[in-house]
Amino acid sequence: MQSLLNITHLQKKIDDFQLGPINLTIESGTITALVGNNGSGKSTLLKMIMNLVKPDQGNIKLLDQFVHGPGEDWKQSVAYQPQTIIGWDAFNGKQLKELISPLYPNWSEELFENMVHLFDIPLNKKFSKLSQGMQQKLNLALTIPRNAPLLILDEPTSFMDIPSKKLLIDVLVDWMDQGEHAILIASHQVEDIKKLSDYLFVLHDGEMIGNYEKEALTESYKRFWLKDTVLPSSKIPGEIVRYNQQLISNQPDVTQQFLQEQGIQWTDHSAVELEEIISLLLTPNI
């Protein structure tokens, strides 16, 4: 597997907001979900990858070329779907396609037509006249068929209806199987994260919490159902949070050993849902 994107020690300060230091490597064949609270700097990070925002420190390399360097060839290797689409208003889908498609050597007309058909996108209507959901669909139909090695999606489905969201997941899964591709997707949709991601890159208020392989993350969290309600008031090793008779740990083995040593009995332990793990990661101060 080839390392497609390589981010090292990336930092950026915007007014009072500090983003980074960020380290992230994306390999071909993988999907990374960029997860974070509102205002955590997800879009800023994606814009830095696109050289739209300049870093204060650190490097971003796409296929071994610095994106903030003088070379511009890397741009053909990445297809970026921004969260807010600016500058498309005056054009219709057909005109936009005429502008965009010749810029990418691997553009797939077939995939474009499939997506237009699948999402029922009117190509002769001006972009400004489309509903927000339809704008997102057109945006995606003009982004995914670029067939660039790296696809960056910034909240692609926030305005889309439930069936369309499902269709998009299928389109992306198919697309991943069509070649050496990788996706970096910022999303608040649990379905997207569960069904698509291999890795979760978690940001909280600009700070990098970590880049986790999905199962490594879910397997590292366990919920213990305790018999005794009287627990030591100090933090139990591995403890993340406790409610009454439940204890959530991210080091289940350590926690289990401690409970055994202290003679605290538990009736059961179970897995923690990914959604809850993300919530716990994004609220570090509970």
């Binding site: 064949g29 993988t30 997941i169 199987d177 991601s197 890795y199 999905k214």
Partner: peptide, 16 residues
């Protein structure tokens, strides 16, 4: 199913 398709159905990473 391809690794990616099974990954989607089972909600498990392609690595696994």
């Amino acid at each position: 199913p391809s690794i990616r398709a099974l990954s989607k159905d089972l909600e498990i990473s392609v690595i696994t």
